[in-house]
Design a protein around this nucleic acid. Structure first.
Lengths: 231, 231
DNA sequence: TAATCCAAGATTGGATACAATCCTAATCAA
DNA sequence: TTGATTAGGATTGTATCCAATCTTGGATTA
């Protein structure tokens, strides 16, 4: 690839984080990224600041930019806010979707289903996220989408950190879509809340309880050979 | 003032927008801001991008950065999301606040009350916003605070654009605090939703219905003598 | 007159050079 | 050996220069 604009770089880094190619606490050195995209550090800095605004990375002055490493408490906050926004969102769209919108949801369900059977759990998780995002999009209110996009991106990082059981309650999505289609707003709302609680419960918070609290701690433990995009 | 760091600049611009010294659609020329803060354009650019991430300003490539000018639809989206987040927030804190937290809320109410009687409606609006923010803070979940801070900042811009009746339902806040104190979660939730709907209803969306849709339109109308921080 | 084209000014976008800061590791002394 | 000190490298932060783009206004021409 030759040069790239800021949007390309933004998408590339965000995708790399979501696909766990960049794992939590990894350092993102500006010059390395700049060279690999054929640009100077300036646009890279802009992108990293933008990602910092979405809490996907953490900028530590004069030290560097690191992929976010949410604590257990932060992870629980993410899921709590997801329940607030998604419960309201699914209630809002219930019984209000067009045939075309419903078929878009249905298509995402099919893709998620086949990703499961093809043994690609990471892809399945991302398609699951897209299902939730689509509902937010269909509310017609941009804030449902904007905030949920941020929260779902963080959910991917949380899953990268704290793992996830294989069984992803795929059937919940199907039932959710039926309730939306039938206009059962209250039931859809309750199911969404339950669904998100179940996802949160499948995370193994205690297992990696010794997960790094601070970033400096990480790199001290690794004795200088810390994880980096250079490696 | 001599030099300034990014945080100073960020706070100064944000305050200027909130206090309506910088009105919607005004252009923020990087070099002008840089000179007035004694720095180069670089940190100013960073701040403007950060504000753009919060939707307080709009960056148009190769044209400039302008104070946000929300449309009626966008304004209604802001209030809808405020209802979602604040209804959940006030329900969450009801009956859970310490004596100290309640007195913090009470103090804000007193300040708001005196700002009203001192004929400073702008200050009263800001103190009202702080009251709502404090509740979000007391949820203990950072996302309530982060998202609401963004939405309330935008509310100030919306009020600057679409005006507001003098009578601000100051008594709602008092009743809200009582319900929180007494642990009447459901009643507090309902009152918060009603309160926010009333605020939205006092906005005069139709009057300034000829409000500028696009920024370029604004400056065409003014025939070159457009509003600017230079002026 | 009216429309088109071009040039100049203003502003932002990006690349580069340098300053500030942090971390590491070697050196030295107790 | 252990601790403090310091020099070097690595990385980010800032300033400055130039390029890209947009807008305006005047000149030119039909």
């Amino acid at each position: 690839m030759g040069v790239a604009n800021e949007l390309d770089i933004y998408i590339a880094i965000k995708d790399a984080i979501i696909q766990q190619k960049l794992r939590p606490s990894m350092q993102l050195v500006e010059e390395v990224i700049a060279e690999s995209f054929g640009v100077s550090r300036t646009p890279v800095r802009n992108v990293l600041r933008k990602l910092a605004g979405e809490k996907l990375v953490t900028v530590i002055p004069y030290k560097g930019t690191f992929v976010a490493c949410p604590t257990v408490e932060e992870a629980k906050e993410v899921f709590e806010m997801r329940r607030v926004i998604e419960a309201s969102g699914v209630k809002k769209v219930s019984g209000k979707l067009t045939r075309d919108q419903l078929s878009q949801l249905s298509e995402l369900l099919d893709e998620e289903h086949s990703a499961h059977h093809n043994g690609d759990p990471l892809l399945a998780v991302r398609l699951s996220g897209n299902f939730h995002l689509k509902i937010a999009e269909f509310t017609g209110n941009n804030y449902y989408f904007r905030y949920l996009e941020e929260l779902i991106s963080l959910t991917y990082v949380i899953i990268a950190l704290y793992g996830m059981s294989k069984h992803m309650h795929c059937s919940d999505h199907r039932r959710l879509m039926l309730l939306i289609e039938q206009g059962e707003a209250e039931q859809a709302e309750r199911l969404m809340i339950e669904h998100l609680k179940e996802i949160e419960d499948t995370l193994q918070f205690e297992e990696k309880g010794t997960a790094p609290q601070t970033l400096s701690e990480v790199f001290r433990l690794a004795n200088g050979h810390y994880a980096s995009v250079k490696g």
